[in-house]
Design a binder for these strands. Structure first.
Lengths: 259, 259
DNA sequence: GCGGGGTGCG
DNA sequence: CGCACCCCGC
């Protein structure tokens, strides 16, 4: 089973390119999409159906929005945290596919200070309690998505320059580490300890062409799921082009043994 | 010499398609463009230069704007009517190319009543006096552009339905006829008396696919220029496609004998 | 820099 | 319907 996480930065703006990627490059079994930026009414269900995917969508107008698209039927679908304090922003959707439990996350962007930063830090503690209270780390749990945090110096193109900037501040990293510490494995870093594995490059300054990126999209697993994880990579096929305009993120794809 | 008039509905949105038309279909000698919708600063001079065109531009931010692009050097360039009552809207540019005097016009859209209609009617009387006072009908004069008026029943797809609607109201037609009566020849109607020659189709309802159009773009000539006019047609190459999005107008192209 | 939203224009 | 404009989010 091949699982991809991909912040598409608008599913409607990206559908043509995404379809080409699935057809010409990589027919992954499960797609976890972030920032679909549309409501369920405007989600291109039919196009995914034609490609063989069953979709669960938690959408919102203009901003945020997450979806899971799977070649295996989805069940046990949970939209949001079931917490009115958080669920006005559509950032989490969970579902089971086969014996895997997928939790798809779009963490807040945050800010250098103030309410947006507070909200981002609280989001990770909410995500932690949500997972611990609703699921079990003994499941084949896969938590994927755009976490908007780089864990370590290796995960950013210039750790000195970027220290203290959004996505690489000490508070953010601590909040994210505290979440990961419930027992999740950072599969990319585990399997590729010597590769940066950037997943995001700013649209500005042609950052992709200078490889000035950050690793902020993750595939995190419970130990039971990690046991089956055979490989993981960042797929640059969509990102390294000028037209049609790609997302600023690249998909991360992990392969899990069928057993 | 092949001369085209083309309301591009934004030169920046249309440049790729226009370039393909010039390269793959029809390398006209002179292009009269309307609704470029940009200032001179934002006009793609370099791309036209690479295609071999010398450009004279009378632009404005967001709306209106006209340009003449020519493979023969342009001279005697006149921008606007030199009348502050009209020249806040950039709708007229004139230039000589070879021994032809080209006057490129984007007439106002108008309305069913009120100030916009008044302005449109006044525009044609201003255009008339502008031409009579500045130029001579004895020149090889070519007045082209989007006149936003259909002359006759044959020039609209449903004269009964459209009677009294914008572009086909009696007042508009009379004002336009009064202008043409200075001694201009409607070359398309003269050379193709039995063809509708629509030049514009509404974006709505897929009007192009039902041929629900109007003939509102003209190549009008003085008798001396008409003597050299060998053929004229509406080129549907750009219009009859879905992607990239075409202008709602099609170019009209006339061929003038070199002598 | 590239998305979304809205509004104005034709 | 598809441009332009603006403001906003990331």
């Amino acid at each position: 089973m091949e699982i991809a996480t991909f912040n598409v930065n608008s599913i409607r703006a990206r559908m043509d390119l995404l379809e080409r990627w699935l057809k010409e490059k990589r027919a992954v079994d499960l797609l976890a999409l972030q920032e679909i930026k549309c409501t369920e009414e405007n989600f291109p269900f039919e196009r995914f159906e034609r490609l063989g995917y069953d979709c669960a969508v938690f959408g919102q107008k203009g901003y945020n929005g997450v979806a899971i698209c799977s070649k295996y039927p989805l069940y046990d679908i949970k939209k949001g945290f079931a917490d009115s304090l958080f669920d006005n922003q559509k950032r989490v959707i969970a579902a089971k596919a086969g014996d895997y439990r997928i939790i798809n996350v779009y963490a807040p962007h945050g800010d250098l200070e103030g309410e947006k930063l507070i909200y981002k830090l609280r989001f990770f503690s909410k995500l932690k309690s949500y997972i611990v209270e609703n699921f079990s780390l003994k499941e084949k749990l896969i938590v994927v998505g755009d976490m908007n945090v780089a864990r370590d110096d290796m995960d950013v193109w210039d750790p000195v320059l970027l220290k203290g900037s959004i996505g690489f501040m000490d508070e953010e990293r601590e909040a994210f580490e505290d979440f990961v510490s419930i027992g999740l494995v950072d599969t990319y870093r585990e399997l590729r300890p010597n590769e940066p594995g950037f997943t995001w490059w700013d649209y500005k300054n042609g950052a992709i062409w200078r490889n000035q990126g950050m690793r902020i999209d993750y595939i995190l697993t419970s130990p039971n799921a990690f046991e089956r994880c055979e490989d993981i990579d960042v797929d640059l096929w969509t990102r390294k082009r000028r037209s049609p305009t790609p997302s600023d993120h690249a998909p991360v794809v992990a392969h899990f043994r069928d057993e």
